[in-house]
Design a protein around this nucleic acid. Sequence first.
DNA 1: GTGTTCACACCTAGGTGCAAAACT
DNA 2: AGTTTTGCACCTAGGTGTGAACAC
Lengths: 249, 249
Amino acid sequence: MNHSSFSIDSILARKAPAKRKISHEESPKLIRVFLQSSSLWRRFHSLGTEMIVTKSGRRMFPTLSVIISGLDPVKNYVVMVDLECIELKRFRYSFHQSKWISTGPGESELPSRMFVHSDSPARGAHWMRAPVSFDKMKLTNNQLDNNGHIIVNSMHKYRPRVHIIEQGGEAQTRHSFSFEETEFIAVTAYQNHRITSLKIESNPFAKGFRECEVQGMEMGNLGVGTGSFQSVFPLIFPYFAANLANVEK
Amino acid sequence: MNHSSFSIDSILARKAPAKRKISHEESPKLIRVFLQSSSLWRRFHSLGTEMIVTKSGRRMFPTLSVIISGLDPVKNYVVMVDLECIELKRFRYSFHQSKWISTGPGESELPSRMFVHSDSPARGAHWMRAPVSFDKMKLTNNQLDNNGHIIVNSMHKYRPRVHIIEQGGEAQTRHSFSFEETEFIAVTAYQNHRITSLKIESNPFAKGFRECEVQGMEMGNLGVGTGSFQSVFPLIFPYFAANLANVEK
DNA sequence: GTGTTCACACCTAGGTGCAAAACT
DNA sequence: AGTTTTGCACCTAGGTGTGAACAC
């Protein structure tokens, strides 16, 4: 709904499912979920993604946003996200070795709060019409949070999980998907300076911290450049097939 | 949903329906709709409300927002608004007489576009839990508008109408409500200077045009003052009974 | 003359990382 | 010493009426 401007992502959203349909015509509908901005996610992942958490709640960047296909257009679904604590350890960043090392057993993994997408419940046709963005989701380290934000432990590793719940008659069916490149370590302050730089270069809200406002593309120190925020998305194409989550649990 | 801060309106939203329930316990459920900020609406109405319309779409101020009661908590409803052209005339503002005068037969009344509230469809419990605001609704004078905004003719008189559609089995039931104090004349530029002043004094987004930033309440030239935006709402109480729309069509 | 459009300054509302301070 | 909190400058995003320019 919020995608009124043209972007490569929104074009993919409309075109990609149509193309796939051809090769799966007779088989029973298979729900598929694609990660948006996956090339940006992969860029962060290769450095070791960090997400800031605060008491009042902080958005994730990159934003988790997915393209869904294979739903029944007239059936109702609830779409939501939780965070899976994927290693029961506490981490620490070693500036000396420039990498994260695990330190001890960490906090016990409580079931994460669910972030229910505000369009829920809605029909399959609605969820498939445009990318489904979880940009309103916020992370907090306040165990007593009262604002419905997702509670995490700092210095622990998480992976977002998208759940699609089918409201079929009596029984509910749950389909879950996740993407390896979206895992991150929750922090209260950035540890890896290269993560900080990539956030500053790629998040429009951090524009005030960009060093260089050169018109062209000089000094695109991390390849993201100062130009259009969408300039990184063409890279999605070659990887597109790999974006399909097949972690149905 | 958007009402995270405390306001007199949101307190009313929770308390008022509960109180009414007592006196209507045995009678069949009657859907009731109350206008929020009705004292502000009435203040504009007494001067002759004008609403700016633009090509790209303009919000209404005051915002149309209602408190709903009497729905079946578990049934699904769609809630929407349209604009009823309430006099088939074209108007002109006479600066000499400081009032609106009708001039000729005006444009033919085409059925207005509907603004469907984005929470639709949702259960009765959802619609009754908090005030339902139509702040995202925009008015345009572009007959070829492609953004889903409500199309109106400038210099014509309109009254917003709230429709609650009950999704009961096969047949749909429609309940419609409107409030006399919300009628307005669509304009491309304000005609009555007193309307302009009241907009400036009461709309937070027009704060830049306020003359006086005195701390106290001196110079509250139209009684709205420079203080909290909610300071006008206590006046709702004495008029509360009169806010009930009973125009079920 | 009357009505409309447009660029603009000035707001609201809220998302960034920063750096100093505070906590443990 | 490592981690967390807080106020802040600096952004994005978009809602105001203004006043000059424009259209009919």
